[in-house]
């Protein structure tokens, strides 16, 4: 059973095609990551799955059904930003959202989630008194408190500090453990790498990556070398190297087609001291940048 099936979906706003001929299958019980530069169509895709937008053409099935409107009790949704009544108390706003999903006795569930995210003391505070991170966690609770089968989170991690990021990451993992399907979009590539069963990347409205991390990395091969050198300057004139990135503490180079890593090592070793040399597959971050690099730099 698939949670979401999209086939040949296109959506335009005026002259702009936001999503073009997109097909996607999200299996039940999986965690699916949506990545892509800003404005590439992630949110449009999510809103179409939510049935907030209707596709111009193509077919979208959620749990095998093509329902006609967004309102469904089976999906929990966290929009990109805010989404809470400022003047309401945390407890009340969560109860309201749960009841809107037809979950009429949410008290225990709310208490449990607030306790889990360390927000129990804030249950009777107004939303406007919360910090940004806290409000974001409350928003997350609002999306999951009715125990939906599919949870869609648009940028759940943006603006969170590392501690809260871990808390939220654990919460998402626990959703999966309880049998929910999770779709989330993110700019946090390491989170996507660590958490997602499958990753989908959309660029300029079209699907450019779709699959498990391993399968995606396989298509790019082991062409990346991580180095720690005494003098990083010697990399600049290296033959057979496509791309050099100096992170300061370490460097990353990408090899050209058919270039032997061993030969590169001996060349570098002749020039400077090498304290780290690791042949690796490109990270999701690298793959993202390779696809969208020029545009991301321009924006």
């Amino acid at each position: 059973m698939n949670a979401v099936e999209m086939s040949g979906v296109t959506k335009s706003f005026g002259a702009v095609t936001a999503v073009r001929d997109l097909s996607l299958v999200v299996p039940s019980g999986s965690v699916y990551g949506f990545i892509g530069p800003n404005g590439s169509g992630k949110t449009t895709t999510i809103r179409m799955i939510m049935r907030i937008f209707y596709p111009d053409s193509g077919d979208i099935r959620v749990f095998g059904e093509t329902h006609s409107q967004a309102a469904t009790d089976r999906i929990g949704y966290l929009p990109e930003e805010r989404g809470l009544y400022k003047k309401m108390k945390v407890q009340d706003v969560l109860t309201f959202y749960a009841k809107l999903k037809g979950f009429n006795q949410p008290g225990a569930e709310i208490d449990a989630w607030l306790a889990r995210l360390g927000l129990s003391d804030w249950a009777n505070k107004r939303v406007e008194t919360l910090s940004k991170g806290m409000a974001q966690k409350i928003q997350f609770v609002a999306a999951v408190v009715s125990r939906p089968e599919l949870v869609i989170l648009d940028e759940p991690f943006s603006g969170l500090d590392p501690v809260n990021l871990d808390v939220l990451r654990d919460a998402i993992v626990s959703l999966k453990r309880d049998g929910s399907t999770v779709i989330f979009s993110t700019h946090d590539m390491s989170a996507a790498e660590k958490m997602c069963d499958q990753i989908f990347m959309i660029y300029r409205g079209e699907k450019v990556l779709d699959g498990t991390l391993a399968s995606i990395q396989d298509t790019y091969g082991a062409d990346t070398i991580r180095l720690r050198l005494e003098d990083a300057g010697c990399l600049s004139s290296l033959q057979g190297v496509d791309h050099v990135k100096d992170f300061g503490a370490y460097q990353e180079i990408r090899l050209g087609d058919g270039v032997d890593a061993q030969r590169i090592l001996s060349t570098i070793a002749a020039r400077t001291r090498v304290s780290l040399f690791e042949v690796a597959r490109p990270s999701l971050h690298d793959i993202f940048v390779r696809i969208a690099g020029t545009e991301a730099q321009a924006s």
Binding site: Q69, A70, A71, T72, D73, G83, K86, L100, K101, A142
Partner: peptide, 20 residues
């Protein structure tokens, strides 16, 4: 308008049809 600005509207229409 506040619901629109706070993106509450988006959560609401995910739960209840606009007419209702």
């Amino acid at each position: 308008v506040e619901e629109k600005m706070q993106r509450i509207a988006e959560v609401l229409v995910g739960s209840i049809p606009p007419f209702q």
